Simulated assay, not measured.
Amino acid sequence: MSQQNTELEGIGKLRSGSLFMILAVLLAAIGILVIISAGMLGGMFSAASGNVSGVIASGIGLLVGIAIVILIGAIIGLIGILRIRSGFGILKSLGRDVGIGEIGTTLYLVGLIIIIIGALLTIVLIGFPILILGEIIALIGGILIGIGFYKVGEIYNEGLVKIGGILIVIPIDLINFVGFILAYVGLGKVRPLPTVAQQPLVPQVYQVGQGTIRNNGYAYITLYSSTPASIISAKIEGANIMSSAINPTVLQIGNNEVTIFFGNVQSLAPNTTYIITLTINIGGNIINISTTAVYQP
């Protein structure tokens, strides 16, 4: 699969995950409103008839009903957050700076699992503290997810996704709901970033400054190397004088102060610039480079 297809897959998972989050919030909101309305009507009827046990039963039924709706919403939200987590993970693997969103989904998942456990335990009235703990963890995760969506909007220059991310950060269900809607719409407009072909780096060795040759037969040259390399030999062009010793023979990455011994250089003209040809081995490739040095007796 090409990088662009992989990137499209990551964006698509973020978008479908946002849709599940929209459905989760919508279902929870509608369900809770319906249950509260039904509970209030049932309580009023029981109170009007003087049935105290009916009022208590109505209250317990209301709490259990809310817990069931929260449970269903949490399951749908779990599916959505898993898709969002996968989307962040794919984009992160491509080098996109969305790791904070992936961390947020981890916290959110932990929170949702705790919420589901708490919702199941409300039947015996010990699950509400667990519900609260799950909500707090999910809240922190939601904030980080919102930041992750904002970063996606920044990376792909999509304003709706950035605004959606900001709204997702705000811990109010209605605002989160709008935030995921904006993120969903914005992600539909996002396109993968253009890929830049990576050109292989060509190893380089070149002279820094100008060298000198002394009457004692030594030449001093500074060489820059982009990769480790070996100097095989050196020759002063025109005078046809070959080197008899070179130190160091192995070039390290960066600048290297190289000393070359040519022996008898009395045939050279003072204050004249000469070309010194170096034969160098770079990764098995033999190349010649030209350097310059002034004969200063």
Rank of each mutant, 00 (worst) to 15 (best):
S2G: 14
Q4I: 14
N5H: 08
T6W: 04
I11P: 02
L14P: 02
R15A: 09
S16Q: 13
L19I: 08
F20L: 13
I22T: 01
A24Q: 06
L26A: 15
L26I: 12
L26V: 12
L27M: 14
V34K: 13
I35F: 05
I35P: 02
I36M: 15
A38G: 06
M40N: 11
G42K: 10
G43D: 05
F45T: 11
S46E: 14
A47F: 10
A48R: 08
S49A: 13
G50N: 09
N51D: 14
N51H: 10
V55L: 12
G59V: 06
G61M: 07
L62F: 06
G65E: 04
A67R: 04
V69P: 01
I70M: 11
I70H: 02
L71Q: 01
G77M: 05
R83N: 15
S86K: 13
G87W: 06
F88H: 06
F88I: 15
G89C: 01
G89L: 14
I90P: 01
L91F: 04
L94R: 09
G101Y: 06
G101T: 13
L109A: 05
I113L: 11
I115M: 14
I116G: 05
I117N: 00
I117R: 00
A119I: 05
V124R: 08
G127S: 10
F128T: 11
I132C: 03
G134W: 03
G134R: 03
G142W: 03
G142Y: 01
I145T: 03
I145C: 04
I147Y: 01
Y150R: 12
K151L: 14
G153T: 08
Y156H: 10
N157Y: 04
G159Y: 08
K162E: 13
I163D: 04
I166N: 05
V169E: 05
I170P: 03
I172V: 14
L174N: 00
F177C: 09
F180W: 12
F180E: 12
V185D: 00
G186R: 03
G188I: 08
K189Q: 06
R191Q: 15
P194E: 14
T195C: 00
T195F: 09
T195K: 11
Q198R: 13
P203H: 08
P203S: 09
Q204H: 10
Q204D: 11
Q207D: 02
G211C: 02
G211A: 03
N215Q: 07
N216M: 05
A219Y: 03
T222E: 10
T222Y: 00
Y224M: 11
S225Q: 04
S225I: 08
S230Y: 09
A234M: 05
A234Q: 05
G238S: 05
A239M: 05
M242Y: 04
S243P: 00
S244E: 13
V250N: 15
L251R: 06
L251C: 06
T259Y: 07
I260A: 07
F261N: 12
F262G: 10
G263N: 09
Q266T: 14
L268G: 08
A269C: 00
A269Q: 15
T272V: 12
T273Q: 15
Y274S: 15
T277G: 01
L278P: 01
T279E: 15
N281P: 07
N281E: 11
G284A: 12
I286Y: 09
N288A: 10
T291K: 00
T292Q: 10
T292H: 07
